[in-house]
Design a protein around this nucleic acid. Structure first.
Lengths: 183, 183
DNA sequence: CTGAAGTTTCAGTAATTATTGAAACTTTAG
DNA sequence: CTAAAGTTTCAATAATTACTGAAACTTCAG
């Protein structure tokens, strides 16, 4: 597994971005390598290509599997494990969004729900609770909406994305349509 | 500035989540404190309430200002700087999305554009480029779409969010409407 | 059943990132 | 203009997070 300069550039960059995307550098590199490699590759090949320790690769693969971003493959007459990316690029994006929502929103949402059950002790706490309610509603809105979006078929999602600012127009049409059907 | 247990719980939690949201612990705590505090407060009050160093507060305030999440206020006959949160909760969410897009997508998008200009040297690189194109298109799609969404008025955004899975239905209606107007 | 090949775990260490606090700088009341 | 009050910077240090590599474990061909 030698990487061409082009591939190396991409893999290294993905590593650097990894931490911003919610996983660490080596996990990012590993995933990038799997994305651009056609055939399934073994943990040893990954370790060799990226010059990282075998143990680290094993940990990283476990994490990528838990995110359901990669899949285990077996070759006939070979008991080694081979890996390849799982699903389309769209699936990948969905998984990443989902996982990040779990880490970044769910814990806060749950804490806010608890706090909002308390009775405010004074004016200061009353004001604080009002603000917290706003934050709560925002997070809940985003959470619900994003899970609705994930439920849409890829085609509809694609339509929606391509619509861009046209979304505004469609919303206007919706109002007209509803009015018409009520008449 | 003493914090009640309720407020402290929230502030500390926001600190812990901070790193997942793109800023560090103390910046998260500071922002949380500013969100739930009604009147503008000074840097010293923040340092005292959170038991963090004055220098750290100064850095954090600078960062929050660069995100446009807080605003400087002056009190008459007082040359101290006071701070308070800037804009609605919605504005806050927009700023955070915007800032994260800059950090998390723009650099990758720009790298991918560059790589895609290269001529693939062999079959392996050809396959890699095909994959990179997919990633590029996805990121570009998300980027464009999210900036379109930000351009929508808060009311329309709200409608869109409340629509939830109804989005699918509206898309169907759109098709019908277009058909009808073509007839 | 044995051992060779492969995989996983984890304690120790390295690398990175956040925080402090003291010194330098800025502002303005008097 | 001076000095007191406030603010900012940044080198040193602490805290956190990632990575290595050796040892323990697992699997299966022969």
């Amino acid at each position: 597994m030698k990487m061409t300069p082009m591939i190396e550039t991409f893999v290294m960059h993905f590593g650097e971005m990894g931490s911003r995307w919610g996983f660490n550098r080596t996990v990012g590199q590993m995933y990038a390598l799997l994305v651009i490699t056609k055939d399934p590759i073994s943990a040893n090949q990954i370790a060799e290509a990226l010059s990282i320790s075998r143990g680290n690769v094993s940990m990283g693969l476990k994490e990528l599997q838990s995110w359901q971003l990669i899949q285990l493959q077996h070759k006939p007459a070979d008991r080694k494990d081979y890996f390849q990316t799982n699903g389309s690029i769209w699936d990948m994006a969905n998984r990443v969004f989902e996982e990040r929502r779990k880490r970044e929103m769910d814990p806060t949402l749950s804490l806010l729900r608890d706090i909002l059950l308390d009775t405010p002790a004074n004016e200061q706490e009353q004001h604080a609770q009002d603000k917290l309610k706003e934050v709560h509603d925002l997070l809940e809105g985003i959470t619900k909406w994003s899970s609705e979006l994930q439920r849409l078929s890829p085609e509809k999602l694609d339509t929606l994305m391509k619509l861009g600012s046209g979304v505004g127009k469609v919303l206007d049409m919706k109002d007209k349509l509803l009015k018409r059907s009520n008449e």
